[in-house]
Amino acid sequence: MQDSDILLRDLDADGVLRLTMNDAGRRNALSEAMMGALGAAFAEAGADPAVRVIILAANGPAFCAGHDLKEMTAGRADADRGKAYFTKVMAMCSGVMQAIVNCPKPVIAEVTGIATAAGCQLVASCDLAIAADTSQFSTPGVHIGLFCSTPMVALSRNVSNKHAMEMLLTGDMTPAFRAAEIGLLNRAVAPEGLRQTTTEMARKIASKSSMTLATGKRAYYAQREMGLSDAYAYASGVMVENMLARDAEEGITAFIQKRAPEWQDA
């Protein structure tokens, strides 16, 4: 498979970009090629005004099985037993997850099949996640002597401590309905309705001002890391600047005048 085929791109007329991981033979593992393609795609989409919302999907029976362990193991042949290579791969993976969070466009995971280890991390890193009710999620590193420490970062920012620790310490598969209950997913739906449900949500979000969405997404992740007082001070400043934006003026005026707003994304 050519690296250019590993991640498919499709942009519709509503500004919804569908990125589809297309390495089913390796269960869409986060190989170097896959991570490179994802990182580049999120950077490009973030800068493209035609893109308003991103859906991350996958072909094959697995959404993403995590790191490519065969690729990782080959690094042990190096003189340092793979330390430099492992460091490089973990930095690449962390960069992809942060690229999703830092992307100004909302990102929705559309999950079918399993999402394990760094694949579960990928789901947790997206802003929203909708899955087929047949999907399963796990952080199974404990089964092979490798604690899922980097998946833990995203997982622990989505679900409560005890639910996160249960997944991390047992490595058990979590069915989609349970993943929705604990906050890893927004919802679990019948497989035949998954694409329609995800697309409808994406189009609903895409109809909003992209300036407003970018402002809100950036502020959400920034304030979450602050103490209460600092978060309110920061968010208040964001609200002031947002009120001065053209789209906020237009949106409020349209609401008062009982008409649809005309966004300029500014």
Results as ranks from 00 to 15, higher is better:
residue 2 Q to N: 14
residue 3 D to G: 01
residue 3 D to T: 12
residue 4 S to F: 10
residue 8 L to H: 10
residue 9 R to M: 03
residue 10 D to W: 02
residue 11 L to G: 10
residue 14 D to S: 15
residue 15 G to H: 03
residue 15 G to D: 07
residue 16 V to F: 08
residue 16 V to G: 04
residue 17 L to V: 05
residue 18 R to H: 10
residue 21 M to S: 05
residue 26 R to P: 01
residue 31 S to P: 06
residue 32 E to K: 11
residue 34 M to L: 15
residue 35 M to K: 02
residue 35 M to G: 07
residue 38 L to V: 03
residue 39 G to P: 02
residue 40 A to H: 04
residue 44 E to V: 09
residue 45 A to E: 10
residue 47 A to K: 11
residue 48 D to Q: 07
residue 48 D to H: 08
residue 54 I to P: 02
residue 57 A to S: 15
residue 61 P to A: 12
residue 61 P to N: 08
residue 63 F to S: 04
residue 64 C to Q: 00
residue 64 C to I: 05
residue 65 A to G: 01
residue 67 H to D: 03
residue 67 H to I: 08
residue 70 K to E: 14
residue 70 K to R: 11
residue 72 M to A: 14
residue 73 T to A: 15
residue 73 T to S: 14
residue 73 T to G: 02
residue 74 A to P: 00
residue 74 A to K: 12
residue 77 A to S: 11
residue 78 D to L: 13
residue 78 D to N: 13
residue 80 D to N: 06
residue 80 D to Y: 12
residue 82 G to M: 10
residue 83 K to V: 14
residue 85 Y to S: 06
residue 86 F to L: 14
residue 87 T to Q: 12
residue 88 K to E: 09
residue 88 K to R: 13
residue 90 M to E: 11
residue 90 M to V: 09
residue 92 M to A: 12
residue 94 S to V: 00
residue 96 V to E: 03
residue 100 I to V: 14
residue 100 I to H: 02
residue 102 N to M: 08
residue 102 N to S: 13
residue 103 C to V: 03
residue 105 K to D: 03
residue 108 I to H: 07
residue 113 G to D: 06
residue 115 A to R: 03
residue 116 T to K: 05
residue 117 A to P: 02
residue 117 A to G: 03
residue 122 L to C: 09
residue 123 V to Q: 05
residue 131 A to R: 09
residue 133 D to C: 08
residue 133 D to H: 08
residue 135 S to Y: 06
residue 135 S to L: 07
residue 139 T to F: 06
residue 139 T to P: 01
residue 144 I to C: 04
residue 146 L to P: 00
residue 146 L to Q: 08
residue 146 L to M: 11
residue 147 F to G: 04
residue 150 T to E: 13
residue 151 P to N: 04
residue 151 P to C: 04
residue 151 P to S: 04
residue 155 L to P: 02
residue 155 L to N: 00
residue 155 L to G: 01
residue 155 L to I: 15
residue 158 N to K: 15
residue 158 N to S: 13
residue 158 N to T: 12
residue 159 V to W: 05
residue 160 S to H: 06
residue 160 S to G: 14
residue 163 H to R: 13
residue 163 H to K: 14
residue 167 M to V: 09
residue 167 M to C: 08
residue 168 L to T: 00
residue 168 L to M: 12
residue 175 P to K: 01
residue 175 P to I: 05
residue 176 A to P: 08
residue 176 A to D: 08
residue 177 F to H: 14
residue 178 R to I: 12
residue 179 A to Y: 01
residue 182 I to G: 01
residue 187 R to E: 15
residue 192 E to N: 13
residue 192 E to R: 11
residue 194 L to H: 03
residue 198 T to H: 01
residue 201 M to A: 11
residue 205 I to M: 13
residue 206 A to L: 07
residue 206 A to H: 03
residue 214 A to S: 15
residue 215 T to N: 05
residue 217 K to N: 11
residue 221 Y to F: 15
residue 221 Y to P: 01
residue 223 Q to I: 14
residue 225 E to K: 14
residue 225 E to C: 04
residue 227 G to S: 13
residue 227 G to L: 10
residue 228 L to H: 07
residue 230 D to G: 01
residue 233 A to S: 11
residue 236 S to L: 07
residue 236 S to M: 04
residue 237 G to H: 09
residue 239 M to F: 11
residue 242 N to T: 13
residue 243 M to N: 10
residue 245 A to P: 00
residue 245 A to I: 00
residue 251 G to C: 14
residue 251 G to P: 00
residue 252 I to Q: 00
residue 254 A to K: 09
residue 262 E to G: 07
